[in-house]
Design a binder for these strands. Structure first.
Lengths: 133, 133
DNA sequence: GTATTTGCAAATGATTTGCAGTGCT
DNA sequence: AGCACTGCAAATCATTTGCAAATAC
């Protein structure tokens, strides 16, 4: 994972083992909670503190390397920044998936109806995933 | 506002002054935060406690009389339940508006792409409102 | 070598809970 | 009258902050 070191440096962040672990886990899991990050990283780095995790997540969000995914009635999960997409949440197993759909027309319609100038959208779709359905 | 009394009773809730005030303020403001509710209701009922407010909001959400509107990086606002709709958030003045757009096609496309069975959607559109634009 | 980062402990902020007293129906 | 509701104080939970020691570069 030498490239993750680069990714951090490109964002002007020092490549600490904790940060590298965060990126690896996000690559592996797609969406992951603070608690899961803590649990996994702690296995390798016994000294890890939650405060460090929170600080790093916030820093990484600040440089747009990570995005927060808010889950209704639950703690947020985090993902590496990729091209804009929406999220699917399975109401049974709580799994999250990405879905890439074009919202251009929706945005246009909204702008027409509301006279807002839309710059960003957040769409969460809840339902049953293929396995649970 | 005699009918608000009825609304509460129809949901099997006792019509206390605190609850009536909550409903009135939601009718007046559309979307309102706990803190604003507290501030306004406290003017009339000096003894109001935040705990009561939270309890009531949660009870009212439980009987589907109220819905929570999560605002990124901010405290939630609350609104009376009405037919499904999306929310517009002005990034400048923080005002929230409703917009009624049909997401049927989006949902269909998502289901096709993901094989999820979608039951509920939450769409938040951020941008500039007509006044701020 | 120096600025950044880490980890601890303590602080903060929002929300929830337990319980005794009050009030709606 | 009886059960639900209120308000207080204390508890909880997630997240943030301050600071001294450690580390990346």
């Amino acid at each position: 994972m030498y490239q993750n070191h680069q990714i951090l440096r490109e964002h002007n962040l020092k490549a600490t083992p904790q940060r590298l672990a965060i990126i690896e886990l996000m690559q592996k899991h797609g969406h992951i909670s603070i608690d899961n990050l803590y649990q996994y990283i702690k296995e390798k780095f016994h000294s890890l503190s939650l405060a460090t995790l929170y600080k790093n997540i916030n820093i990484m969000i600040g440089v747009d390397l990570v995005k927060e995914v808010k889950i209704p009635n639950n703690k947020s999960k985090y993902e590496l920044t990729k091209k804009p997409h929406s999220h699917l949440l399975c109401t049974k197993c709580n799994e999250i998936s990405d879905v890439f759909i074009d919202l251009k027309n929706i945005i246009k319609e909204c702008e027409k109806n509301s006279h807002y100038k839309i710059s960003e959208t957040t769409l969460l779709l809840k339902g049953l995933c293929p396995k649970c359905n």
